[in-house]
């Protein structure tokens, strides 16, 4: 049984990787390549938040802060201190982990709306920090001249090089998350989602696990921030404000809570949609709000799960006379 499941998941990842390679080879328009690269970055973001929100059931309305910490740390390290970017990555991930840990300790004692409010608060604080700490962050005019990434002699500034890097990382993140989700830790996270008390009665150290998943999720966001900074080579505070946090939450909700592949869908939809409907960009907040409301009311399990449920219900309705109900 386990072997079969493993083979299935290997197949899945082989197909996924193949489709990435084919896409990178087939799409030559640099604009679309960049758009696809952005989807990859957002997928990492959404995936991280999904671990926290979808699996462990702890909401964060301030995830743009960690995204920003990742981006600003690597930007400051490479621009001000002339560090090589990969060292900037290590610093970004490490710093984010420390900050997330310190924030999580008091914050995760909160639950429900209060946790939402609390995380909203620190998102705001970091946004203001990015904007006002002009000496370091360049203030509202931002930081310019972030160097592109390179591996050895290979510079990843052309569209396809960066595309492969980002999507390679996406695949790795997917594998990591899938392994976590199917382990005892993943079960414990879902248990916390349902009832912290019952999870504790099973012997799950709920507070420690919550802090752990918060840090993991923040590190994912930081990684996304790093990739973003070296892709666009210019960052400003507006890329990490409140609406970005909401956008990440919307991605998770559309893709489906507690669904790894849903993160990919959510990120794709919310990246393509504003691109296709230019009107949309003026009413971004309104549309996100509407999407969130509609999905929450009618498809509380998320868009993917909801659609699957509808499909399954329809199928069972049509096939009921012929097959037995035993599934």
């Amino acid at each position: 049984m386990r072997g079969l499941e493993n083979r299935n998941s290997h197949m899945k990842y082989a197909l996924f990787s193949l489709s990435i390679v084919l896409t990178g080879w087939w799409v030559s328009n640099p604009y679309y390549l960049q758009l696809l690269t952005f989807i990859g970055i957002y997928t990492v973001l959404a995936l991280g938040l999904n671990m926290l929100m979808g699996y462990a059931g702890q909401i964060s309305l301030g995830h743009a802060a960690f995204y920003g910490i990742g981006a600003y740390t690597t930007a400051i390290a490479t621009v001000h201190w002339n560090w090589p970017p990969w060292l900037g990555l290590l610093l970004a991930l490490g710093l984010t982990a420390v900050i997330a840990f310190l924030i999580a300790l008091p914050m995760l004692k909160l639950t429900g709306y209060y946790l939402g409010m609390g995380t909203l608060g620190f998102g705001m604080i970091f946004y203001i920090l990015f904007r006002e700490w002009t000496g370091f962050t360049g203030g509202t005019s931002g930081l310019v001249g972030i160097p592109p990434l390179s591996i050895g002699a290979l510079t990843l500034d052309t569209g396809s090089g960066y595309f492969y890097l980002v999507w390679g990382i996406v695949v790795v993140c997917f594998v990591i998350c899938e392994r976590i989700v199917n382990s005892r830790v993943g079960r414990a996270l879902r248990a916390i989602h349902d009832s912290e008390r019952a999870a504790a009665a099973m012997g799950v150290d709920t507070s420690r696990l919550k802090v752990w998943v918060f840090v993991l999720s923040a590190v994912f966001a930081s990684l996304a921030g790093f990739l973003y900074a070296h892709l666009v080579t210019f960052i400003s505070p507006d890329s990490f404000d409140f609406i970005v946090s909401i956008r990440i939450v919307t991605m998770v909700v559309i893709g489906g809570m507690a669904s790894i592949w849903g993160s990919l869908l959510g990120a794709s939809v919310l990246t393509f949609l504003p691109d296709w409907l230019h009107v949309f960009s003026d009413y971004e907040m309104v549309v996100y709000g509407l999407i969130l409301m509609v999905v929450m009311i009618f498809l509380p399990q998320g868009f993917t799960r909801g659609m699957l449920d509808i499909y399954e219900r329809a199928r069972s309705r049509y096939s009921r006379p012929s097959t037995s109900p035993q599934g």
């Binding site: 005892r184 879902r190 248990a191 349902d194 009832s195 999870a199 099973m202 012997g203």
Partner: peptide, 27 residues
């Protein structure tokens, strides 16, 4: 403890619920 009102994890499968009982032993 078998808690009052059972406190199961409703969306998880029966098997996963049982495995959660052995959470500490998996470690």
């Amino acid at each position: 403890l078998v808690p009052e009102g059972r406190l199961l994890f409703p969306p998880m499968s029966v098997l996963d619920n049982l495995k959660l009982g052995a959470y500490l032993r998996y470690r």
